[in-house]
Amino acid sequence: MGVLKDAAAKIREINRTYAVPRIRLTTGTKVVLIALRVYLLTLVGLLLYSLVTRLGY
């Protein structure tokens, strides 16, 4: 339990440390990052669906 608590605390600390992006993002870059996010979420969704159906058989 202690190890898990420490890990959770460490993750929270990492999130705090890197909370604010340290580079200036242009509008173009921001659009690319949003598109990338949508693309990846779709791909991961398809992947999970496929994994579940494949291992189900």
Binding site: I23, R24, L25, T29, V32, L33, L36, Y39, L40, L43, V44, L47, L51, R54, L55
Partner: peptide
């Protein structure tokens, strides 16, 4: 299911590759 593992390793790598390359280009422009 080693066949499934071999197949999925490529697919999961593919999900990371475009992101890693885009980050690389953005960072190399700072």
């Amino acid at each position: 299911p080693l066949g499934v593992v071999t197949l999925f390793v490529q697919v999961i790598a593919v999900t990371l590759l475009p992101a890693a390359l885009v980050f690389l280009i953005v960072l190399l422009n700072q």
